[in-house]
């Protein structure tokens, strides 16, 4: 690649794509990098606060409910693992949509985009249920009904961080679903067939995978650890 035959000015001299990626896709990567820093800042702030506090609520006591389950059910990690799998599977269907786009297979794109959108909506519904449930237990920004692991009184830091970070992530999921719906409409209108490529789907795909990626971190930091 850097052998002597190429004169140094050529690669970055214009008219070439030094990274061999389309401009929009490269910028999507840089946007996602900056978004990673935003999420990172949130999560590290959460971690710092947690490290500076003596007690912290036990996630297995807080997130133990399940839709349609009886009142006193104790099922930690069950509901959130379903949410995690929904997001992983929707990420897989998005990869399949991108791949179908590379093969100019319109039917495949439409089918997999619809599946991805359904996955996204399912995830959002799960989150809505969980927020609603926690709200009715008395948890919200500024109010924390849960006790620390060791039975001492807890501050509202726990709920503040939980609702802020999962809310910010949920907003990303929501915008991802909207973007995917726009992609679906554009595909159905044959926009990409006319352009001759489905590169737009790849950019939407990058965003969607990023949402899945962030959930991997949020899920670990709030529910597991």
């Amino acid at each position: 690649m850097s052998t002597a035959t190429v004169t140094p000015t050529k690669l970055w001299g214009g008219g070439k794509s030094p990274f061999n990626v389309e401009y929009g896709k490269l910028m999507m990567w840089y946007f996602l990098m900056s978004d990673a820093f935003t999420f990172g800042a949130f999560l590290i702030s959460y971690g710092t606060t947690r490290f500076s506090t003596n007690g912290w609520p036990d996630p297995n006591e807080v997130f133990k409910s399940f839709p349609f389950a009886p009142e006193g059910v104790h099922a930690p990690l069950v509901f959130v693992s379903i949410m995690t799998f929904i997001l992983i599977i929707s990420s897989v269907t998005m990869v399949l949509a991108v791949r179908a786009g590379q093969n100019m297979d319109k039917k495949g794109v439409v089918k997999n985009l619809i599946l991805t959108i359904i996955g996204g909506i399912a995830f959002l519904s799960c989150q809505a249920w969980e927020w609603n449930h926690l709200y009715h237990e008395g948890a919200w920004w500024g109010s924390n009904p849960f006790l620390n692991h060791d039975g001492t009184a807890s501050s509202t830091n726990f709920t503040n961080y939980f609702f802020t970070i999962t809310g910010f992530h949920g907003f990303h999921v929501f915008s991802g679903v909207v973007i995917n719906i726009i992609m679906l409409i554009m595909t159905l209108m044959d926009k990409f067939e006319q352009r001759g490529h489905y590169l737009m789907i790849e950019k939407a795909g990058l965003y969607w995978h990023f949402v899945d990626l962030v959930w991997v971190f949020v899920f670990t930091c709030f529910y597991l650890i």
């Binding site: 506090t53 003596n54 007690g55 709200y135 009715h136 237990e137 008395g138 919200w140 009904p145 006790l147 060791d150 039975g151 001492t152 009184a153």
Partner: peptide, 17 residues
């Protein structure tokens, strides 16, 4: 602060929103 974080409290009665 140290003392506060060792006092155990009863779980509050369900104060629903």
């Amino acid at each position: 602060y140290k003392e506060q974080s060792t006092i155990k409290v009863e779980k509050k009665a369900e104060n629903k929103h």
